[in-house]
Design a protein around this nucleic acid. Structure first.
Lengths: 207, 207
DNA sequence: ACGGCGGTCAACCGATCGGTTGATGCGCCG
DNA sequence: CGGCGCATCAACCGATCGGTTGACCGCCGT
């Protein structure tokens, strides 16, 4: 089984090399610290499974790299292995074509089995991740509308309600209505808390 | 040289074991995933250097663990090895008694040399971290005081002025005074904008 | 066709925030 | 020693925000 590692932390890459080197059925055929390097290496080495971190340091992030990998002819399986477990991260990764989503905090055995499952094309999720997905399914009320995300982005740049209204060509009253909905969906009570909650859930991105 | 690892990611611990195992002068005498486990292990094994992550998953964080380690009789050197590089993280770690601050994204050689330097009691900083500190020194006009950063962190969690005051055992009036200074230093006009500005400048980090 | 949902708007009120002025005490440094 | 920066507190005011209620319209799916 040919593996390719994408992670911007040399320590983590070395760790995976050491861990996976002990498994006789696995062979690491390449590594990359960034997105562009990963795409070059993967087209050249044609691995079976790519272990992908989402935070890559350089501009392009792991989700985008995953999407481009899956657009290659006869693409490898992409197994996300990262620290974070926000709804938005998971959904975006799956949407981009990831075969699975594991956390770095998971026990090594779960990692080994996950890689083998991913190589067979099976979807594999960390138990914590699976739990979160289930909760989300059961409560679809927490999904923000596109308009609400638009409001959140202006909120995050520190604009007042008046300015947000002006930029979106709506009235201040409408902005406040949206805000009430956003607070309710995010489970917060103030605009500032809404911004941090949205950033944590990767609903929006700070520039 | 006796080393002790504290990191909640099994993958990272395995990576460090593999990396450092190749260095003849280094020996890993113990590991821990959480704070309490770390304190027990360190008192038992008496390492020379502790490699400490700041995010430990369980309640107690790496800064607090570092502080308690340094309060032990004849304490080991604590070298922080983490993903983040915010001013607040760095300052709090140093203040807690850390000997140095390295990033997981640093090249392995820098890690090896850093550990040897830490064992000799020398202060060691990643180049990125050192650069940030220098910039901070050169432009003290925009440097926030420790108290102001403290306010910012509560601000970022969405607390109102009253709650911030209560938590810091000061009055609301004082909080507002700090906020005016913070706005001025960050060049913003609202609390929400202050949070995003602080996050962008890595003065604080969202949880 | 009807209901549900998302988006829009209005008017209102209390609570909070932003900003000002002015003041005190503390530690540090030239 | 005399400043200077930092932290602390007070009182005040207008502006803004948070929250409510109620309403209208258009789209979509059963």
């Amino acid at each position: 089984m040919r593996l390719f590692l994408v992670d911007d932390h040399p320590v983590v890459r070395a760790g995976l090399v050491a861990l996976l080197g002990g498994e006789p059925d696995m062979e690491i055929v390449g590594e990359a610290a960034g997105g562009a390097e990963a795409l070059r290496g993967i087209t050249a080495r044609e691995p079976d499974v790519v272990l992908m971190d989402l935070q890559l340091g350089d501009g392009i992030d792991g989700v985008e790299v995953t999407r481009r990998i899956r657009e290659l002819p006869s693409p490898p399986q992409v197994l996300v292995l990262t620290t974070y477990e926000s709804d938005a991260d998971i959904m975006r990764a799956i949407d981009a074509g990831a075969t699975g989503y594991l956390l770095k905090a998971c026990p090594p055995d779960e990692l080994f089995q996950g890689i083998r499952a991913a190589a067979r094309g099976e979807t594999v999720l960390s138990t914590k991740v699976a739990t979160r997905m289930m909760k989300r399914m059961r409560d679809p009320g927490t999904a923000l509308s596109a308009r609400e995300v638009e409001i959140l982005e202006l909120l995050a740049s520190g604009e007042g309600n008046r300015e947000i209204a002006r930029r979106l060509f709506i009235t201040e009253a409408t902005v406040k209505t949206h805000l009430v909905h956003i607070y309710s969906k995010l489970g917060v009570e103030t605009r500032t808390a809404a911004v941090t909650a949205a950033v944590e859930r990767r609903l929006i991105r700070l520039p």
